[in-house]
Design a protein around this nucleic acid. Structure first.
Length: 654
DNA sequence: ATACGATTTTTTTTT
DNA sequence: AAAATCGTAT
């Protein structure tokens, strides 16, 4: 038996042991939110709820996994599985069973954003839209518009007029593209990320029997990071909880940082209106940070109008005041960070207790170089995601055509790797292939080779050879691991890698790791579908959960929910955070301030805020930067004042 | 006509 | 660093 009263504080204890019904938990940063949630699940299990009757929606799959692992170690013996994961992965699993009720094949596949962009691109080509004559938005911008319209439930026209007013005159064309995009997805039998949510909601809304089955199955619904849900996700939750109303949502409106993808923190603000009988709990004791760090965080977030009033209380002993460092330029800034990290390391702090956070990936470039130069071990949690890298997508496209020979996007990627096959030649080949019942067999037939476009025959021949090798594998042997091995050692992919990339060897290692990772899945199509939803983790995270002693470099977004003893926030200049571009969005400044708040509250012991005075960008040239408004607005006092929430360090040249 | 290499631009955040 | 664009070679 777990001794709840001993292991939890009174605030947490009440949440954990509260009966069912709608519950809203406002959990400030560092208040033990995850702990509360895990103990609540444990408590439900101990009170006799069966695991399969619990649904736990989290913001990342990793968060769900680690929470469920913790539950498992709390409650020793339980069998069955709790359904946990992101809304996307939960929706995905639901749709696997019921997509046929919406007219989809139950073997639909998931396209990631790159694939989605491709489809939109081909829709644009098909509509003969001239992207040259009039300045037409690029396909990724169109994708953004369509996605935002769906996730915020606004008409495409309204999204364009509020966020992309300069393209308003093109909204008719854009609308056409969106329709054709939808059509194409249906024809290809694929869903994009948004479709997963939209279709799941539609299923629950339109099919009362399914809603009944599912809402009876999930007797208790728990939602983490509720402030980052969008309307679709909130609706899905409401629907699933519509019978029993055992719904607990946990979140912190001050940490809502995903409005760019449709998250609406009003979901959490208006929760009490949607559930007038809900009970509201507040977790306001911060165990993480020193009072000095918390003071700075509180001062900053108080500049936001739109929020629940809250007062985070620090319980830790006094520590060091946060430090502001102004460096002449980005190089000096990374110099300082690296220098300080070395000093801390020499004084015995492990690297993994330190993190460098920034607003945008490209802010971290100089720091990366400096760390390499000084041999500081580090791990980057931003930039191109592991599963989205070209070589990963290359080898999985072989797997995709084996699983589904009608997968146009996979064929496209695969064929275009071969010499003399570009966009046009692919279209020619595909226009013949797609009419076939068995495209794979057709492509490897002798006769097809002869009728292929002359210049491409060599390429098609090579491709055919490789595919024949793959097909020679017995079906039980056709695992990702074996396929990767074969492509590298017998096929031509290793040569291709070496010809195309300077870091071919590192990419080869990635592929081996991918093979290991894939071994977790029983079926290859499961693996391929999950892949699209897993794109977010760095390889170490996802593939091998090894904890290494490395400094973490991360965007603030990816740092959500994590903590380190020593945190460096670089680029604390106006224009970098708040990012100039983000300020143009409605509500942009407040969202950026929340982002800053999230960054600051990651720190346990020491917080360093640095910014470069001079910055160079190709578009604007050399620019003088000011300290972030989030710093200047909380320090009206003179620099010498002892009551400033931070102290300022000067850098000296060596 | 097409592929492909060189050059230029362009960077938010992510399921 | 990657994508988009441009110019050249085939």
């Amino acid at each position: 038996m777990i001794e709840y009263a001993k292991e939890l504080n009174p605030e947490q204890y009440r949440v954990v042991t509260e009966e069912g019904g709608p519950l809203l938990v406002l959990a400030g940063a560092g208040s033990g939110k995850t702990r509360t949630l895990t103990y609540r699940v444990a408590h439900l299990l101990e009170s006799g709820i069966r695991p399969e009757n619990i649904l736990l929606a989290t913001f990342t799959n990793k968060a769900a996994r680690s929470m469920l692992n913790r539950v498992e170690s709390l409650v020793q013996h339980y069998t069955g599985k709790i359904m946990g994961g992101t809304f996307h992965s939960i929706s995905h699993r639901i749709l696997r069973s019921y997509a046929f009720r919406l007219g989809y094949s139950s073997s639909f596949s998931i396209v990631d954003s790159e694939d989605a962009r491709q489809i939109i691109g081909s829709a644009m080509a098909e509509l003969k839209i001239d992207t040259k004559l009039t300045k037409f938005p690029k396909n990724n911008i169109i994708a953004e518009m369509i996605s935002l319209a769906l996730n915020t439930e606004t008409a495409l026209e309204d999204v364009i007029s509020s966020r992309y007013p300069f393209f308003l005159h093109l909204s008719a064309e854009i609308h056409q593209i969106a329709c054709l995009y939808d059509q194409k997805k249906k024809d290809l039998s694929v869903m994009d990320f948004d479709d997963l949510l939209a279709n799941c909601r539609r299923l629950l809304r339109e099919q009362p029997d399914i809603l009944q089955t599912l809402s009876r199955r999930f007797e208790h619904v728990l939602v983490d990071e509720y402030q980052d849900t969008n309307i679709l996700q909130a609706d899905i939750v409401d629907l699933l909880a519509s019978g029993h109303r055992n719904l607990m949502v946990v979140g912190d409106d001050s940490q809502s940082i995903y409005s760019f993808r449709g998250a609406n923190f009003e979901n959490i603000i208006h929760f009490p209106e949607r559930y007038p009988d809900c009970k509201i709990f507040k977790l306001e004791t911060n165990y993480r940070s020193t009072p000095e760090i918390l003071h700075l965080a509180n001062l900053s977030i108080n500049n936001n109008e739109n929020q629940f009033p809250k007062a985070l209380k620090a319980v830790r002993n006094k520590g060091m005041r946060p430090v502001i460092v102004s460096a002449q330029n980005v190089l000096k800034q990374s110099d300082f960070v690296a220098q300080r990290i070395s000093e801390l390391s020499r004084s015995g702090v492990p690297f993994c207790e330190m993190a460098v956070l920034y607003r945008a990936h490209y802010h971290s470039m100089e720091a990366q170089m400096e760390f390499v130069r000084r041999d500081i071990p580090f791990d980057i949690r931003s930039g191109i995601r592991f599963f989205e890298q070209a070589h990963i997508k290359d080898v999985t496209s072989y797997m995709r055509v084996l699983v589904n020979p009608h997968d146009e996007l996979a064929w496209r990627r695969l064929l275009m790797m071969y010499p003399k096959i570009g966009k046009i030649t692919f279209e020619k080949i595909w226009s013949r292939l797609k009419k076939q019942d068995h495209p794979l067999e057709t492509l490897i037939s002798e006769s097809f080779l002869q009728t292929a476009p002359k210049s491409a025959q060599n390429g098609v021949g090579q491709c055919r050879k490789t595919l024949l090798l793959l097909l020679a594998l017995d079906v039980p042997d056709r695992t990702p691991e074996k396929i990767i091995d074969l492509l590298l050692n017998k096929g031509d992919y290793r040569t291709y890698l070496q010809d195309s990339y300077s870091d071919a060897y590192a990419r080869e290692e990635d592929l081996i790791q991918l093979g290991n990772f894939a071994a977790r899945f029983e079926r290859m199509d499961d693996f391929l579908n999950e892949l699209a939803l897993l794109t977010n983790m760095s390889k170490e995270e996802e593939i091998e959960e090894r904890q290494e002693d490395k400094v973490i470099l991360s965007t603030i977004h990816q740092a959500k929910g994590l903590e380190w003893s020593y945190v460096f926030i670089i680029g604390c200049a106006d224009g970098m955070i708040p990012l100039e571009r983000a300020l143009r969005e409605p509500g942009g400044e407040e969202e950026e301030r929340r982002l800053f708040y999230v960054a600051v509250t990651r720190a346990k012991d020491q917080l360093y805020l640095s910014y470069p005075v001079l910055d160079y960008s190709r578009s604007a040239g050399v620019q003088t930067l000011c300290p972030s408004r989030f710093l200047s607005e909380i320090s009206p006092l003179s620099p010498q004042d002892e009551h400033r929430p931070f102290e300022q360090w000067a850098l000296f040249d060596d």
